[in-house]
Simulated scan of single mutants.
Amino acid sequence: MRHAEEVTFGGSGLDRAAQLRGDAAAIDDIWNASTTRVMLLWRGKPLFADGALAWLGCTHPVLDGRKKGAVFLGLEGEAARFAVDFSDWQPEELPDTLNTFLDPSEQRHPDLPENHVFAELRRLMTLLSAREAELAATAKAILSWHRSHAFCSRCGHKSEISNGGWQSTCPSCGGHHFPRTDPVVIMLITHGNSVLMGRSPGWPEGMYSLLAGFVEPGEPMEAAVRREVLEETGVPVGRVSYLASQPWPFPSSLMLGCWGEALGTEITIDPVEIEDALWVTREEMLAVFAGEHSKIAPPRDGAIARFLVANWLADRLD
């Protein structure tokens, strides 16, 4: 698919400088450089300033004592970029909307400027440049992995961040653990002039999307597409082809966008998996995108589902 990397989080050519990660002296040097900038994340929410990522110099007081847990993201020219988990900070109030689908709350730290807020990435991701989006997705995914893998899976001892943040090492048994990405297939399933859409329980009113599911161990991508669609809707799928991918740091998935051709149209949903599924014609989908459909809300900007459907409507899947 010629337009594959135009999707949000699709990549910007960031120099990740992986050759520096294992060089502790080099990491120390670039951390202390005047051009180095650090991204803070609180409970997975990046620090924003006026709709863009907010970056701090490494000498900022809120970063005191946090170098050991910093993740080296890469280089922009000669300038290093790091990310630091700030989740141990406790705001005065914790809103009920935390961890909801599109958390509208924003948190302000007293030692940061008034326009600096921790905000949900899913809500603001379309405001970011391609470079900022790649940096934010990388930081959110790897810091989330460190939070959920704080202990060695071999012996249970507390692990330590190592290799520039790209490894977890156990000081007790010497085990090394590396960040993982979960592959998820998301499927543009078509039959003639229609595309298959589904809805999960608990989604906002009117929200429908393409079907999706995790790839199981030992399972090819194409087989995962056929299995997930059949399990969720009872629709058999024949030919499957790959279209595009999207890193999706919620918390650490890689969405594999696929195109599948349905062999039938009868739908029998699995109510454990989804709440509803339906076929949507091109004409209806145009009304959806225009916000004029009676049942389905327009798909969210930034999601690969919208990207794939929009390219289907425009006949740009080649």
Rank of each mutant, 00 (worst) to 15 (best):
1 M>T: 07
1 M>Y: 13
5 E>H: 07
5 E>P: 04
8 T>E: 13
8 T>F: 14
8 T>D: 09
12 S>V: 05
17 A>M: 09
19 Q>P: 01
20 L>Y: 15
22 G>S: 06
23 D>P: 14
24 A>V: 06
28 D>Y: 15
32 N>D: 08
37 R>S: 13
41 L>V: 03
42 W>P: 08
42 W>A: 07
42 W>F: 04
43 R>K: 12
44 G>Y: 09
50 D>Q: 14
52 A>D: 15
54 A>D: 09
55 W>I: 10
56 L>D: 06
59 T>K: 09
62 V>C: 14
64 D>W: 00
67 K>Q: 13
67 K>G: 02
69 G>M: 08
71 V>L: 12
73 L>D: 08
74 G>L: 03
77 G>I: 13
88 D>I: 10
90 Q>H: 15
90 Q>S: 15
93 E>G: 04
99 N>Y: 15
100 T>K: 13
109 H>D: 08
111 D>W: 11
113 P>C: 05
113 P>R: 03
114 E>Y: 02
116 H>W: 15
116 H>G: 01
117 V>L: 01
122 R>D: 10
123 R>D: 12
127 L>K: 13
129 S>A: 09
129 S>I: 05
130 A>E: 05
132 E>I: 01
133 A>R: 03
139 A>C: 11
140 K>Y: 05
143 L>N: 10
144 S>R: 08
148 S>T: 15
148 S>E: 12
150 A>R: 03
151 F>N: 11
151 F>D: 06
153 S>C: 05
156 G>C: 05
158 K>F: 08
158 K>M: 04
163 N>H: 14
165 G>C: 09
167 Q>K: 02
169 T>V: 14
174 G>Y: 09
180 R>A: 15
180 R>F: 07
185 V>G: 03
186 I>K: 01
188 L>E: 02
188 L>S: 08
194 S>W: 00
195 V>N: 03
196 L>V: 04
196 L>A: 02
198 G>M: 12
199 R>Y: 10
203 W>H: 08
204 P>W: 12
206 G>R: 05
206 G>E: 04
208 Y>E: 00
213 G>R: 01
215 V>K: 09
217 P>K: 09
219 E>N: 01
221 M>L: 10
225 V>Y: 01
226 R>M: 02
226 R>Y: 01
227 R>S: 03
230 L>G: 10
232 E>F: 11
233 T>P: 07
233 T>F: 12
237 V>G: 09
239 R>P: 00
245 S>H: 13
249 P>L: 05
252 S>N: 10
257 G>R: 01
267 I>C: 10
271 P>W: 11
272 V>E: 11
273 E>P: 07
273 E>A: 14
277 A>G: 07
278 L>F: 14
278 L>D: 07
279 W>K: 03
283 E>R: 11
284 E>R: 12
284 E>S: 13
289 F>M: 08
290 A>V: 14
290 A>D: 15
291 G>L: 07
295 K>P: 06
296 I>Y: 11
298 P>D: 06
298 P>V: 10
301 D>L: 02
303 A>P: 03
303 A>C: 02
305 A>Q: 06
305 A>E: 12
306 R>P: 03
314 A>Q: 12
